[in-house]
């Protein structure tokens, strides 16, 4: 079976998540991560990586665009609300949550569809 570069899977995850996230619920990004895993037949390890990076990067980029345009007003308030040291920490938390959800979904999809290697 052809082995696609992981970067392609990451891009695919991010793109799929980007399209799906235009429609709630927010966890539709998990579907994009899982679908990519299935399409690219990713091994569990690469699946997690591509899910984590794909969703995480997408969320990082959108959050950064919003945050820079807003000059950190909202992120500073949210950081205080969640007792985080500064706005950057709130961005990190956002990326981490997106990443973990994407990664776990992709990993799950990989395990659920993987065959015995014999």
């Amino acid at each position: 079976m052809k082995r696609y570069p992981t970067i392609l899977a990451i891009v695919s995850t991010a793109a799929g998540a980007g399209v799906l996230s235009m429609f709630p619920p927010w966890w539709s990004v998990a579907i994009a991560a899982a679908a990519t895993t299935f399409l690219f037949r990713l091994s569990p390890g690469r699946a997690f990586l591509s899910g984590f990076c794909g969703v995480g990067l997408l969320w990082l980029v959108i959050a950064l665009i919003k945050d820079i345009g807003n000059e950190h007003i909202l992120s500073t308030h949210m950081a205080q609300l969640f007792s985080l040291p500064n706005y950057a920490a709130f961005i990190a938390v956002t990326v981490l949550i997106g990443g973990i959800v994407g990664g776990m979904s992709a990993w799950s999809a990989s395990l659920l569809t993987s065959r015995n290697k014999q």
């Binding site: 235009m22 927010w26 959108i62 959050a63 909202l74 992120s75 956002t94 997106g98």
Partner: peptide, 13 residues
Amino acid sequence: VDPTNGCWQNAEA
């Protein structure tokens, strides 16, 4: 925290 629908959308430019 979902940036496309959650609180980040309230970050007004």
